[in-house]
Simulated assay, not measured.
Amino acid sequence: MSTGTRIDRAGLWGAVASFVLWGLMPLYWHQLKVVPSLQIVLHRIVWSALLVALWLVVTQGGGWWRKVKARPRAAAMLGVTSLLITFNWGLYIWAVNAGHVIEGSLGYYINPLVNVVLGVLVLRERLNPAQWVAVALAAAGVLWLTVALGQLPWIALGLALSFAAYGLLRKVLAVDAVLGLGVEGAYLFLPALAALVWLELSGQGHFTSGWGLGIDLLLVLGGALTALPLIGFAFAVRRVPYTIVGMLQYISPTLQLLVGALVLGEAFPRERMLGFGLIWLGLAVFAVDGWRQSRHRAPAPATPMER
Rank of each mutant, 00 (worst) to 15 (best):
278 L>M: 11
169 L>I: 14
209 S>Y: 07
181 L>Q: 15
168 L>R: 08
280 W>N: 03
283 L>D: 04
124 R>S: 14
150 G>L: 11
240 V>Q: 01
192 A>H: 08
271 E>R: 10
276 F>K: 05
205 G>H: 09
244 I>V: 15
273 M>V: 09
25 M>K: 00
299 P>S: 14
178 V>S: 04
144 W>E: 13
251 I>M: 03
117 V>F: 05
34 V>Y: 01
276 F>G: 05
195 A>K: 04
206 H>M: 14
58 V>W: 10
224 A>Y: 04
76 A>D: 06
156 A>L: 12
56 L>D: 01
86 T>I: 13
143 L>V: 13
297 R>H: 10
205 G>T: 11
288 V>A: 14
17 A>S: 10
38 L>I: 08
95 A>E: 02
119 G>D: 08
188 L>W: 13
80 V>D: 01
215 I>Q: 13
267 A>I: 05
199 L>T: 10
174 A>D: 15
229 P>D: 11
13 W>V: 12
178 V>F: 06
195 A>R: 03
281 L>S: 09
175 V>R: 00
156 A>F: 08
229 P>C: 11
272 R>V: 13
24 L>C: 09
78 L>V: 11
64 W>V: 12
255 L>V: 01
61 G>P: 00
2 S>W: 13
304 P>Q: 13
176 D>K: 05
73 R>I: 12
124 R>C: 07
153 P>D: 10
157 L>P: 01
58 V>F: 05
